[in-house]
């Protein structure tokens, strides 16, 4: 059953075009020019109960605007929107009781007080009885492992701990839908990993539908079976996350640092070729022609390689004795750009 449906959903902002200089400013006192900017355009979307969907897109793509329309914070300019049978911007309390929203950059916790203090207020706002409140709080306190942090001032918590509290506050009334806007922003790898595990568990055990907006590919690839990619306010991909990554995440960025000076540049290609040849059992030697050196200093090397050749590249680098190596996926902007180009040829959706 669909609990969210949108059809040709559009949000347009009008913005003032300021003419250059003082004379332009004086003219604009009497005559102003405005331009229309579509933050979200003709967006069709459906979410089934219990689904966990990732919303991906670069900065300014329209992800947050879409989330704000789905939660009723802002009204759409045109199109149809139905969330659990409600028009969100009517801001009905019956509607607001059934969802929760966590915005990575906006906290709902009282900074100087404890998480328990905020939870008490939310207990009253969501009209929970004492027993239900205590049971739900105990469940999440155990799940997040934060029992000893409940009576600590929020401002003294780490970013990761604070995000756990944000999630607890949001999930206290057991919403049917949880909107998460960049929940892992600023978190380190360990904290992000924990948050992802909790979300997976909440989705599985409580059946909470989740719409996750994130810049981080890892959030999406670990959590979401389905992804929706937005670019310039339009949907450019809606489908399985594994297919998205298989088709559009083509490269890996390898960064290695060295205590000794690096050998000359041409050796890298030779080592890579040898490694690839070794991997192919000496049958069909391949040339690592698409390896792109992004940065090279005497003690640091950053290269971009096709993902299927990443192990060969690592094998080529290892003999030089790196002190540290990191391997990163394609950045979200690159992937989206690729989908967009593919989409313009009619292949993405």
């Amino acid at each position: 059953m669909n609990i969210i449906e949108t059809e040709r959903l559009t949000k347009t902002y009008r913005r003032f075009k300021k003419p250059e200089g003082l004379s332009g400013s004086i003219k604009s006192l009497w005559k102003r020019e405005y331009e229309e900017k579509a933050a979200v355009r003709d967006f069709d979307f459906a979410l089934q109960e219990g689904e966990l969907v990732g919303l991906i897109g670069p900065n300014g793509a329209g992800k947050t605007t879409l989330t704000k329309m789905l939660t009723g914070i802002i009204a759409p300019t045109s199109g149809r929107i139905d969330v659990m049978g409600f028009y969100p911007n009517d801001l009905k309390n019956e509607f607001k009781r059934q969802y929760a929203v966590v915005m990575g950059q906006k906290s709902q916790l009282f900074y100087e007080l404890t998480a328990n203090d905020t939870l008490r207020l939310f207990k009253e706002i969501y009209e929970l009885d004492e027993k239900q409140f205590r049971e739900t709080r105990a469940y999440f306190t155990e799940l997040f492992g934060v029992r000893e942090l409940m009576d600590v001032q929020v401002r003294t918590l780490s970013l990761g701990e604070r995000m756990k509290m944000e999630l607890m506050v949001a999930l206290l009334h057991q919403p049917r839908i949880l909107f998460l806007d960049e929940p892992s922003i600023g978190l380190d790898a360990i904290a992000s990993g924990q948050i992802r595990r909790f979300l997976k568990q909440v989705n599985r055990e409580r059946g909470t539908s989740i719409i996750l907006t994130s810049h981080y590919m890892e959030d999406i690839s670990t959590l979401c079976d389905r992804s929706v990619v937005i670019h310039h306010g339009c949907k450019v991909y809606d489908g399985r996350t594994d297919e998205l990554f298989a088709r559009y995440q083509k490269n890996k960025k390898i960064t290695a640092t060295f205590s000794q000076e690096l050998p000359p540049a041409q050796n890298l290609a030779a080592e890579g070729a040898a490694s690839l040849q070794g991997q192919a059992g000496g049958q069909s030697p391949r040339r690592p022609s698409r390896w792109e050196v992004l940065e090279r200093t005497p003690h640091k090397l950053t290269i971009l390689v096709p993902k299927e050749e990443a192990s060969a590249a690592l094998a080529a680098i290892m003999p030089w004795g790196p002190t540290d190596i990191s391997v990163e996926e394609d950045e979200i902007g690159t992937v989206v750009e690729r989908i967009y180009q593919d989409g313009s040829r009619g292949a993405a959706l």
């Binding site: 939660t71 914070i73 309390n93 607001k96 009781r97």
Partner: peptide
Amino acid sequence: SGELDLYLTKPV
């Protein structure tokens, strides 16, 4: 600042 967002999403 957009801080009103979180007030609008609560059933009060």
